[in-house]
Amino acid sequence: MKAAALIGIAAGCVALAASALTVQGQVRAAGERLKTGATLEKPKVAVANDAEAAYCTPAFKQVLARVIHACGLVGGDSRRGCQPADVKTLASINDEDFNALFHPLKERGAVIMFDDGQDKLDEEAKRIIADRWQDRKGARYFFIVARASKTGGADFNRTLSHKRANSVLFLISDQFKADDPNIDKEAGLLWLGSEFAQLGKEYCDWNVSRPGKCTPEAINRSAFISWVDCQL
């Protein structure tokens, strides 16, 4: 009987010691892994970011990056503005290619049309601008690319183009500045004079503010607006 008791006690102690030390060893090993960081490689998790659409080709992003830097949208405290001459240099591409860059934005954007020699927005233009602005989704930058037709002198057209771009920007600021204090850092303006390639009639198929009055000349008295779904 004594032998049985001794065997039982010995077996119990061995079982207890083995189990407890095994567990304690595992705890220590886990602590060591925790301390040294010797753990399984964690999968990389993406960080929330702006949208990146398929049309964000390297060429498009290059133009975009140069424009937003030149326009003071990033890296500066105040808007510097984008002179048409700058854009020619910045884009480093010919006019036709420059226009083509915006083709993927056909559905996303809109063409705001103006009267001849005017920069005033009509009601439909205002509605479309508000609608497009609010359809932001994951975009970070909103582009306003204003134009003027070839009628008139280069300086006049350039000034008119600039005014048209500002008309759009001021409307957005008036309506949405309270909700979005960062408009200055989001909206990029380009005012293109008559020296830039004119838009063809096919642009009348886009979302234009005056679909019934779209002619090859009228489409160039305009401002193209769109959010751009590209990360930069």
Partner: peptide, 15 residues
């Protein structure tokens, strides 16, 4: 720990 004890105790009873 409890099962280790019961194992030892059962062994004692068995013997």
């Amino acid at each position: 720990g409890a099962f280790a004890f019961f194992a030892a105790f059962a062994l004692y009873l068995l013997l």
